[in-house]
Design a protein around this nucleic acid. Structure first.
Length: 279
DNA sequence: CGGTGGCTGGGG
DNA sequence: CCCCAGCCACCG
């Protein structure tokens, strides 16, 4: 038993230490949980195999990373995660989108728009002219970064017309992320589903549909005073009003999810309890 | 399996 | 018009 625990601890340690600099970059203030970490070039997530969904995803975003190839062709294809076998698959979503009520599409948690930029520091990006074709001057080394963001482990069922698609509240929160990135230069984001006690809609082979989702957007005003907006959004609600109506405290999201945000930061109650307003 | 191309829809 | 979020059929 002791050796099993030691082995598990060692395994987690090795996984985490494989890319400590990426965890440091993407996960603001420390890991909210540490069950099944997956470290990718553009994002980090903690996977919940029982629900076939991430507990959370985290990413750092700046103007550089927004330089993605056009989302078309191979850059728009969803792919199976080569490092998992217990993730949702394309077949799990089959026919669901056509259902008027259960109009679920595959929604990115770490969005496509963060998957670009010069990550290896060679001065080149994948597709400067956004035509979707790798050509002379492009950096093919950045192709994996784009493909990773389209892995099924980073996708969950999201109601397209009421939530994920244009006009939906998730779509508008992602617009808010872009807006804050442009305003402050760089932001950090946590996003994920909220499962409480109770029953959930299930699609395909035991893929759980979250009844709510959260996003926390963080930026730095100075080294020790992060500013942030935390949102909690119902999944099935077409008329969602202003996104400001969904602002909550980080403590609220922690209570709903069991996660522990910013464990490495000495944040006072003011930061954790406040509800932040737009502008 | 990966790649191509055409489609829906809201908003600026 | 473009952007962004998605869908599907079809082909090698």
């Amino acid at each position: 038993m002791k050796t099993t625990v030691a082995f598990l601890a060692l395994t987690l340690l090795i996984r985490a230490s494989a890319s400590p600099e990426l965890i440091e970059e993407h996960v603001f203030g420390g890991l909210p949980s540490e069950d099944d970490l997956m470290v990718r070039t553009a994002y980090v997530l903690d996977y919940d195999a029982d629900r076939k969904a991430p507990r959370w995803v985290a990413y750092h975003l700046n103007a550089n990373y927004r330089q993605t190839p056009k989302r078309t062709g191979k850059w728009s294809s969803y792919r199976n995660d080569p490092d998992r076998t217990d993730e949702p698959r394309e077949a799990d979503y089959r026919g669901v989108f056509q259902d008027e009520i259960r109009n679920y599409a595959r929604g990115h948690l770490a969005p496509f728009m963060i998957s670009g930029g010069d990550r290896d520091g060679d001065g080149k990006i994948l597709d400067a002219d956004k035509d979707g074709i790798v050509e002379a001057g492009d950096d093919p080394d950045e192709a994996d970064t784009v493909k990773q963001v389209n892995f099924h482990s980073n996708l969950t069922p999201q109601h397209h017309h009421a939530f994920n698609g244009s006009g939906g509240v998730w779509f508008e929160i992602e617009e808010r992320v872009r807006e804050l990135q442009e305003e402050h230069g760089e932001v950090w984001v946590f996003a994920g589903p909220v499962f409480g006690p109770g029953n959930y809609d299930i699609i395909g082979n035991d893929v759980h549909v979250a009844p709510m989702f959260f996003q926390i957007i963080i930026w730095e005003t100075n080294a020790n005073e992060p500013d942030m907006e935390a949102y909690l959004m119902p999944h099935h609600q077409r008329d969602h009003g202003s996104i400001a109506e969904h602002l909550v405290s980080v403590r609220h999201i922690e209570a709903m999810t069991g996660l522990n945000f910013f464990p490495d930061l000495a944040l006072g109650d003011a930061e954790r309890m406040s509800t932040y307003s737009e502008n």
